[in-house]
């Protein structure tokens, strides 16, 4: 995983609550065995009509949001299926941070494991970003080290678990890190050797 660095990116407002992972990446794209290339399938049924033509009114299809790297949405983003294809698709499309008042647990974890910063923000501040994003193309600076979001006339601190922050900032290989606890795992296994199948 690459270390997460401070960046400035364009905001894309997605004015919806309860965006589920079936919408983020529909099931017909889950049959692949790799991690790459899912960006073209992101929000497929919202972006394309039944003939594969772009739907002009969907926010991602509007030219001014084409290069966005920060997605802002409403409550309970990423609910439903555990498919990690959802963050893979968001990342492959170019999103590096997602802002919402709340996220579904598994999705939040999946973002973390892929170096995408999921930021929980007060609903009124999210509302402000969405309204502003709808009328004006603007960029936001995301500084994980300082836990700060900033833009012209916008400054906001955000909370993140210190451990999760460290993993993202360093781009840690979590498995390699866990394997340094090998002795403890082995001891646990010896003490709890129950019948397995």
């Amino acid at each position: 995983m690459h270390p997460f660095k401070t960046f400035e990116g364009r905001v894309c407002p997605l004015d919806r609550t309860n965006v589920d992972t079936d919408q983020i990446i529909p099931k017909q794209f889950l049959k692949r065995v790799g991690r790459k290339g899912f960006g073209s399938c992101l929000f497929y049924n919202w972006r394309f009509d039944e003939h594969g033509n772009k739907k002009a009114d969907f926010v991602l299809n509007k030219p001014e949001y084409a290069q966005s790297s920060i997605l802002v949405a409403r409550d309970n983003f990423g609910c439903g299926s555990s498919r990690e294809h959802a963050p893979w698709a968001l990342q492959d499309y170019g999103f590096r941070a997602i802002i919402a008042p709340s996220f579904a647990d598994i999705f939040y974890n999946n973002c973390q494991k892929n170096g995408i910063l999921a930021i929980r923000l007060d609903p009124t501040r999210v509302d402000e970003l969405i309204r502003r994003g709808a009328t004006e193309v603007f960029a936001l600076t995301v500084d994980l080290e300082q836990q700060k979001l900033s833009a012209a006339n916008f400054d906001e601190h955000f909370e993140i678990d210190p451990y999760q922050k460290e993993v993202l900032l360093k781009g840690l290989d979590e498995i390699a890190m866990t394997l340094t606890y090998e002795d403890e795992i082995a001891t646990y296994e010896k003490q709890h050797e129950t019948v397995v199948h």
Binding site: S82, R83, E84, N110, K113, E174, I175
Partner: peptide, 8 residues
Amino acid sequence: IGTSEVEH
């Protein structure tokens, strides 16, 4: 869990 956690 997600796929990264499956691997973990």
